[in-house]
């Protein structure tokens, strides 16, 4: 990704977090972390951001369980999930690939996703690539379901899927192409997406971050980010 593409995604993340009181960001997620810190800047002190793996930007004092207990209490409004595969029904697979039902490749594991997907109201799905091998018709393994199942207590679920090419909203159990990032078009998204998605008229063009947002990203956001993601923070340039 170019620096401009990264800045655009950071701004998109911040837009998706508007109105949240407390956003948690998992491990290995520099763009979501940057977007959350930008949203906090824009919220003028009305938003809390907890970055896992950070000493300074994580408030937790009760061990590894506290994030999960905090989510269960309804104290976390938004969280991010990526995945080896994401399908058209919003299902996320973090575990591995299967062929004819048999596991053929295993990644790190399910982490907290089978739980957090139910307990956090605003789940933002995020991928750093846009590829039909990862955006698939049906995931090989459901780490976290996009919706339901019926009758099961659930506080929320996916609201959007953000990629380097576009933003999908997640509504009524499927994705809706809402906006195209500059330089990408509908035909390209169709070709690079393995699942069918809905359209509501012409998709918008994702606006670039306004000047004052850029200043905040390259100022306080980058400064805060340097503790957890030093290489990424340095790469944002000046």
């Amino acid at each position: 990704m170019t620096r401009e593409e990264v800045l655009l995604l950071i701004a998109e993340v911040a837009r998706l977090l508007e109105g949240c009181r407390h956003v948690a960001v998992g491990a290995l997620s520099p763009i979501p972390a940057a977007g959350a810190l930008l949203a906090r800047e824009l919220a003028d002190g009305a938003m809390r951001v907890s970055i896992l793996g950070s000493r300074r930007h994580s408030p937790f004092t009760d061990g590894g369980r506290e994030l999960f207990d905090c989510a269960a209490q309804g104290r976390i409004d938004a969280f991010f999930l990526s995945g080896v595969q994401i399908d058209g029904a919003g299902n996320v697979n973090l575990l591995g690939l299967r062929r004819e039902g048999r596991p053929i490749r295993r990644f790190a594991g399910n982490f907290g996703a089978p739980y957090l997907a139910f307990l956090v109201p605003r789940l933002i799905l995020f991928r750093t690539d846009h590829d039909p091998r990862s955006l698939v018709e049906r995931v090989d393994f459901v780490t976290a379901p996009g919706s339901g199942p019926p009758g099961v207590w659930r506080r929320g679920g996916p609201v959007a899927l953000l990629t380097p090419c576009c933003r999908f909203a997640f509504r009524d159990g499927r994705f809706l192409l809402e906006s195209l990032h500059p330089g990408h078009d509908l035909e390209e998204i169709r070709a690079r997406t393995g699942f069918a998605f809905a359209l509501a008229g012409e998709p918008a063009v994702t606006p670039p971050p306004p000047e004052d947002w850029r200043a905040r990203i390259l100022g306080p956001v980058r400064e805060a980010l340097a503790e957890v993601y030093p290489a990424f923070a340095a790469g944002l340039g000046g």
Binding site: A72, L95, N110, P114, Y115, L116, A117, F118, L119, F141, V142, T143, A144, P145, G148, P149, V152, W153, R154
Partner: peptide, 10 residues
């Protein structure tokens, strides 16, 4: 007891 997880292939 634990919330969530129901509906995951886990």
């Amino acid at each position: 007891p634990l919330r969530g997880v129901l509906g995951s292939d886990l």
